[in-house]
Design a protein around this nucleic acid. Structure first.
Lengths: 113, 113
DNA sequence: CTCAGCTACCTTGTATTACAAAGTAGCTAA
DNA sequence: TTAGCTACTTTGTAATACAAGGTAGCTGAG
């Protein structure tokens, strides 16, 4: 498992919920949305398990809708619990990302000192 | 397992390496250093496995030194491999933290739009 | 009507790590 | 000698990213 995979643990939920909060999306489309947001190469094999887990936990709900072409599409919407969870994740992220960024910044290559 | 535990996965290595890069520390002291940096309540049960794993992977080396009081202390220093690994982690962190922060920011509670 | 190609969704096992909590051990002071 | 503290270690549990294979439906061409 790569550094990136480990870093994404725990935060993918927040990313997915954030995308859905803006506008409902279907699973297949979500990868492109994350890519647009700068999270490169998050594949279906990653996305569908996250979506299904969030749905199972009641944070989102899925609605099958017909597609212009191909099979039906499952559109996802946040639930109230999802909105709350997203707020919590943002809080936790803020509490961690700041200190981590500072640590990584000043840590650097400064052996001396 | 909490949101925070998941968020810390993968990035604790970078934090620990960053602290050690500035100045060598011993295990027991590291919790206080991380607390000073804003990473609250990272306990020994978390820290020592990280330290031992980094040592095993050749990113740091430990040196037992006498203590003014109590048992010997194991001071940790970065190796060359550790310096390289830290650079990689910083790169990966920067590539993820930016997009994630942006996503979580605009995601918000804006259902409309 | 059948089939290829594409879209869309799903599942499973593997690999990895945070951490609680229990444990060992040494040093100092009483 | 013993209590209290410092310092380090270990282990099992819980959780998740994701590769890769799979199923299924729709459209268009033959």
């Amino acid at each position: 498992m790569s550094i990136r995979s480990q870093l994404l643990k725990g935060i993918l939920d927040g990313c997915v919920l954030s995308v859905i909060a803006v506008k409902s999306v279907y699973g297949y489309e979500l990868s492109a949305k994350l890519q647009e947001a700068g999270l490169m190469d998050v594949s279906e094999g990653t996305i569908y398990p996250v979506l299904l887990r969030l749905q199972k936990n009641g944070l989102i709900r899925g609605e099958m809708q017909p597609s212009p072409a191909g099979p039906n599409r499952k559109y996802y919407y946040l639930t109230d619990a999802g909105i709350e969870a997203l707020a919590l994740i943002k809080e936790e992220w803020d509490q961690i990302a700041g200190p981590v960024s500072n640590l990584l910044k000043k840590g650097g290559f400064n052996h001396g000192s």
